[in-house]
Simulated assay, not measured.
Amino acid sequence: MRAYYFDNIPGDQRLPHDSGNSVSNETLRALHVLHWSISIDDTGSWEHQIDGVAKERGYKNRDIINVTKKALGDMYETKLKGFFEEHMHEDEEIRYMLSGRGYFDIREHSTEAWIRVQLTPGDLLVLPAGIYHRFTLDENNAAKAMRLFKDEPKWIPHNRGVDTDANTYRENYVQSLKGNPAV
């Protein structure tokens, strides 16, 4: 996994948009963003490691999502646009990248800057409930990821706005950052 500040230069969202300013693991942890690198291998040991993380964090369900034109058909462009709208969820968002590559952009609360996190196969990312973020593929236009859920699978985005800023999960997230000088 690689994290850096988004360059904010207009252009295709699927390009790297690398400002050249790296973001440390400490900054991500201060935002309550977690990451594991679990190499995918033929022995299946990665599955046992995912099971361990799932048990430790209380994830009971999982599914696989293929974000490709072939898999999503006529909904492909609409889905990509929806994923790239700034939003938050009332649950953690957990993704384990199985193949392809993509970017999660995470809003740094104190500066409002975007932090771009590049995921490649073997990266497991956990975004806390209430954090503003967005997702896009890279220029190869394909990603396959395992999604993990604490309860029944659901994915309800709450696009950023006045009502979402007042959402209890958002308020709890912002409160959890108070007193943390890194954010």
Rank of each mutant, 00 (worst) to 15 (best):
Y132Q: 03
N172S: 07
W114M: 03
D123R: 06
H35M: 13
E47P: 02
S110H: 02
W155F: 12
D41G: 10
G73R: 08
E56Y: 10
H32S: 04
L15R: 05
V183A: 00
D165R: 04
E92M: 07
L15Q: 07
A145P: 05
R62K: 14
D151Y: 12
S24L: 06
E90S: 05
E171N: 04
E77D: 15
E139S: 14
R101Q: 15
E171H: 05
R147P: 09
E26A: 15
M146H: 08
T68E: 11
Y173P: 06
G73T: 07
E112T: 02
K178W: 09
E90G: 10
Y132H: 02
K69L: 07
H32C: 01
L28H: 09
Y96H: 06
P16N: 05
Q49C: 01
V117S: 00
Q13Y: 15
M97P: 07
D51Q: 07
W36E: 12
I115A: 01
K60W: 12
T136V: 12
D18P: 04
H17Y: 13
A30H: 01
P181C: 13
L80M: 15
D63C: 03
Q118C: 14
I131V: 10
R62W: 06
L34K: 15
P128M: 10
F135Y: 10
L34W: 09
S24K: 07
P181S: 14
K178S: 07
E93T: 09
R147K: 12
T78I: 11
S45H: 03
S39Q: 15
T168S: 13
K150E: 15
V183L: 03
L127T: 01
W36R: 08
M88R: 01
I9D: 10
D12G: 01
K81H: 12
S45P: 00
F149M: 11
H87Y: 01
A145N: 12
F6M: 03
L137Q: 09
